[in-house]
Design a protein around this nucleic acid. Sequence first.
DNA 1: GCACGTTGTTCCAATATTTGAAACGACGTT
DNA 2: AACGTCGTTTCAAATATTGGAACAACGTGC
Lengths: 268, 268
Amino acid sequence: MTAAGDGTVGKALDVLDLVAAQERPVRFADLHRMSPLPKATLYRLAQTLVSQGMLVQNTENGTYSLGVRLVRLAHAAWRHASLAPIARRHLDILSQSSKLTVHLAQMEAGHVLYVDKRNLRESVQMFSEAGKVGPAYCTGVGKAMLAYMSVSQLDRTLRLQSFHRYTPKTVVDEAALRLQLERIRSRGFARDREEHEPGIICVAVPIFTANDRVLGAVSVSGTVIQTDFKTLEAQVPGLRQCADAIAEDAMHWDFPADHMAEFEGRQG
Amino acid sequence: MTAAGDGTVGKALDVLDLVAAQERPVRFADLHRMSPLPKATLYRLAQTLVSQGMLVQNTENGTYSLGVRLVRLAHAAWRHASLAPIARRHLDILSQSSKLTVHLAQMEAGHVLYVDKRNLRESVQMFSEAGKVGPAYCTGVGKAMLAYMSVSQLDRTLRLQSFHRYTPKTVVDEAALRLQLERIRSRGFARDREEHEPGIICVAVPIFTANDRVLGAVSVSGTVIQTDFKTLEAQVPGLRQCADAIAEDAMHWDFPADHMAEFEGRQG
DNA sequence: GCACGTTGTTCCAATATTTGAAACGACGTT
DNA sequence: AACGTCGTTTCAAATATTGGAACAACGTGC
């Protein structure tokens, strides 16, 4: 599941991921049970990470959690490598014109990474929303990105999926998914018919680079009682305009880090 | 400046910090110039980090930026190790009752790390605010935390400061600072008289753990044309109440990671 | 067109570091 | 007192990191 790590740092980062995956602080024994690494190795790695501020260790019970140093790094990462800073303006516009919940997402290690969100009703929830990950195969933004990947990229990404039936409507069959992607391509946008969360539907479009690679995706979503696909799809032109505006800004931006490169580099 | 790193991972994380410190994507040669590491070592480290998704490399010009994997990790870090999730409710209350800008901060490697913010006027700015770092010796939240540290903690933290005169009113003398801290202790709250940003004043109080260690700090701030210290200090009881409420919740919370431990562990 | 400085990348043997089975002391439980 | 669990440390063998130096690939100026 976790990619074979290069060298010591790879293992160290795997440990970080392991801690991150946990919902609560973990004891050493728990880590040991989950990690393939031998006890002593794991122990020294954890110690190093604590000493580096990437993990924090509770002084009384010795449990590990992620360290706040990561928050500082992520602040920079968010500015450097995410579309969020350049997309901000455009998301605001889309949010106000559509009166719907707007999501901005990118692809990260086969998963959908939400980097920004707009919701007119509730006040924005900072990190609690940005940084969240979701499945690629059953979300609007995920499918929008998958649909426009190159064949090799798509294959590699699909290999990373572990299909899980979130709702009765979740598509857990790769062949069926590929069929969906084709329809998305011909249609120009992706739908999520309560495939990830019951009662939540959404419509999403991809964002492209100058050379037609997928950078990310934008979506508008709502609950089935508040809205329907007729309403959502009426927003597709607005979505497209928003995505294009982001793409345009991303071009003239000086930081057009190739967001797929990061993903390509990793060995599945 | 950057702590001597333990082993390979320490060096790798230093590279991350180096990239994070830069405002824009860096070329390899730039990194090489800034890092003490030899060319080949640095090169392999950077490659590893890219392969791990911690850095992204622009495919056309080869420049490095921080990778979005960090954003995902930070999301978890923010939930695990920051006060933000448990403080949210209380910050909202303080923000609405005071009608002022509210900051929540913690100490990280000798610097102030802002983990949340409230501002009634502008909509919240997600990562662009949370994750920001600032100096400890000339901000309200920073001084509030410094004032209530243990002697050894304080010494260690002060050693990490690189005093810089941000404004004409910035105190850049350690002795003077220590005097200020004493006054803060007797007063119970800290002031920032335009010491960090011209025109910005603030009042801050520390947040304590059950055993009287400093967890973080809360502040209310404003511009000198909008507000004055009389107004700000009228909010001190509200601030205190907010801080205590956060501390109370942090106790009953299951994640009371010792946020100073992370800092203590690091060798200056 | 040639020489030059720069940049990113690769080699390779010496070296230092990671490695991991095993042992250890400290608790808490039965 | 015997046992399981937990976190921590030891030590020689194995391996990965190290970094000086050479390398191709540009781009620049002369």
